[in-house]
Simulated scan of single mutants.
Amino acid sequence: MNGASVVRNKQKVLTELSKGDFDAFLYDCDGTLADNMEGHKASYRAAALMYGFELDDTIIDELAGWPIIQVADEIRKQYGVNFNPEVFAQLKNMLYEDTFIQETKPIDFVVAHLKAHAGKVRIGVVSGGGRVSVSRTLQQIGVTSLVEVLVCAGDTVRGKPYPDPFLSAAEQLGVDPTRCLVFEDGNPGVQAAVAAGMRWIRIDQV
């Protein structure tokens, strides 16, 4: 089976899974719409080296969807390194945006799913990434004009795994949270969707 066939089959499965009486689809960005997690991991590792320690990037998978400052704070705690999480997050973002963002590719079957449903349901993107980085990523994968609402790190007091970002997106779209379907690749995002009373699909299991 060639790559195009795999994409079509996965898009078909995702379309079947997402059938229902939904008013809005809310997509995570990194690892869900965008195939860029290796770039994010590399920028975390590079930032850590600049602080003098080697980072095991499995922590990035475990905390996928957390706001970057909170990930940085968790790294600080686990590694016992004294740094300002906000400054670390800014460094990580700078490294990612300067070096890795241009390598971002779409996760084709998810992007195709979004494009196929734009105009039929409301479309939002809810991410733990910074607004500049997420906006550039959405532009890179060609969906900026289809996204009606973008909720990023810092837009709500609490990020994933709390429900606040998804509830904010639903409110901005004028949609009942129970009529939203969330597309996520990480446990914190799924936990946030459940807490928001929304149904969800794990992209990495399609």
Rank of each mutant, 00 (worst) to 15 (best):
I68E: 13
T156G: 04
S43C: 02
D108F: 11
A196S: 09
V157G: 07
V190L: 12
H40D: 01
K41D: 07
I123Y: 02
R76P: 05
A112W: 10
T104Y: 03
N9R: 13
D21Q: 12
G128M: 00
I107Q: 03
L33I: 06
L138S: 00
E38K: 13
A42K: 14
H40T: 02
E103G: 07
H117T: 13
V71G: 02
R45K: 14
L55V: 00
N93G: 01
G130E: 14
L114E: 03
F109H: 09
G142T: 05
V132E: 15
I201T: 03
V111S: 02
V7M: 01
R199V: 14
D30P: 04
Y79R: 15
V175C: 05
V149M: 04
R45P: 07
R131M: 05
V157A: 13
I107R: 04
G80V: 04
A193I: 06
A192T: 12
D108Q: 15
V132P: 08
D56T: 09
E103V: 08
K10R: 15
D21F: 06
D21K: 13
A112T: 06
Q191Y: 10
I203A: 01
L167G: 01
G197Q: 10
G154N: 07
L150N: 04
R8M: 10
Q172H: 11
E38G: 08
A116W: 09
D204L: 15
L49C: 10
V126C: 00
Q102F: 11
F166H: 15
F25N: 03
H117V: 11
A24R: 05
I201L: 03
Y96L: 00
Y96D: 00
R179Q: 14
T137P: 03
V111I: 04
A48G: 01
F53P: 02
W200G: 04
E54H: 13
K41T: 06
G142Y: 08
V194R: 14
D57W: 10
T144L: 10
N82E: 15
K77A: 15
I60G: 03
Q102M: 08
Y51H: 15
H117I: 08
F166V: 02
Y96N: 00
G128I: 00
D185I: 03
R8H: 14
P177W: 07
E171Y: 11
E148Q: 12
A153D: 08
V143I: 03
